[in-house]
C-alpha cells in the first residue's frame, strides 16, 4: 500500500506524531531566561540563524546524508551524535530518534532502530521513496513551528505574531532544504554559538518546563 508522499510526510512531521517534540525547546527556555530573546522579532532572528548557519542547517544535512547513504548509515549516525554541541542536544536527537524509529518501524514496517532523529528521518524518507527536498522543507518547518510554539509558552509572543514568524521563515526553510540536499558531511557547520551556549546553560536552569 502506497500513500501520497505529502500525506506521509505531514503525518511524520505533524506535532501530533509521538516523538514528543513539544517537550524540547532547543535552548530557547534558557535564551528567554537570559533575556537574549524578548520579542517576536528577536525570535525570528534567532530562528533565521538556526536555519541559515546554525543547528537546523546542520541537522538538515544529516537528514540528507542519511537519505543518500553514500557512507554507511552507522557512520552518518555517529557523526550526528559527535556533532551535538552538548548533552541536551544529544538528548533531543536520541530520544526523538528512538520514538521515530519505533513508530515508523511498526506502522510502516520499516527497518529502523537506534538512529538519531535526523538520520532516522532521512533513512525513512529513502525507504519510503519520498522526495528529499520536500522532506527537508517540511522537517525544517516542523522544527520552526515547534520552537515558535515553545516560545509562546516562554514569553510574550501572541498567536498572530507567532504565525507571522512561521510564515516569514517558510522561504528560508525551502532555501536551507535546497542547500542541504547534497548531504555532504564535510559541509556541515554551525556558527550559532550562543544558541549552543543557551542549550548548555539550560542544564542548570532552576525552573524549567522543557527538557532542553
Amino acid at each position: 500500500m502506497r500513500t501520497d508522499a505529502v500525506l506521509t510526510l505531514t503525518q511524520w512531521l505533524s506535532p501530533a506524531f509521538p516523538v514528543g517534540a513539544f517537550t524540547y525547546s532547543h535552548g530557547l527556555e534558557a535564551a528567554f531566561e537570559a533575556g537574549w530573546i524578548k520579542t517576536s522579532a528577536d525570535l525570528e532572528t534567532w530562528l533565521t540563524d538556526l536555519l541559515t548557519l546554525g543547528s537546523a542547517h546542520a541537522d538538515a544535512h544529516f537528514v540528507a546524508a542519511a537519505y543518500h547513504a553514500r557512507v554507511p548509515l552507522a557512520e552518518v549516525d555517529r557523526a550526528a551524535r559527535a556533532f551535538a554541541p552538548c548533552r541536551e542536544r544529544l538528548l533531543e536527537a536520541e530520544a526523538q530518534g528512538r520514538a521515530f524509529c519505533d513508530v515508523v518501524g511498526h506502522v510502516w514496517d520499516a527497518d529502523l532502530a537506534g538512529l538519531t532523529y535526523p538520520v532516522a528521518l532521512g533513512r525513512a524518507v529513502a525507504i519510503e521513496g519520498l522526495p528529499l527536498e520536500l522532506s527537508l522543507t517540511l522537517y525544517l518547518q516542523a522544527f520552526v513551528s515547534n520552537l515558535v510554539s515553545a516560545a509562546q509558552r516562554l514569553g510574550p509572543i501572541g498567536q498572530t505574531e507567532a504565525q507571522r514568524v512561521i510564515r516569514t521563515l517558510s522561504p528560508i526553510c525551502e532555501e536551507t532544504a535546497r542547500e542541504a540536499a547534497d548531504g555532504e558531511l564535510t559541509h556541515i557547520a554551525s556558527s550559532s554559538f550562543l544558541s549552543d551556549i543557551a542549550a548548555m546553560k539550560h542544564e542548570t536552569q532552576r525552573s524549567r518546563i522543557f527538557r532542553t
Binding site: D49, L53, A58, H187, S190, S192, F193
Partner: peptide, 26 residues
C-alpha cells in the same frame, strides 16, 4: 577511529553582520 566530537565553522562574507545577532556572538 570512531568520531566522538565533530565541529565545523563556516563563515563567508560579512562576518561582522552574521556574528552580530543574539544566537551567534551578539
Amino acid at each position: 577511529r570512531q568520531a566522538v566530537y565533530l565541529d565545523g565553522v563556516a563563515l563567508t562574507g560579512d562576518v561582522d553582520a552574521q556574528m552580530s545577532t543574539a544566537s551567534t556572538l551578539n
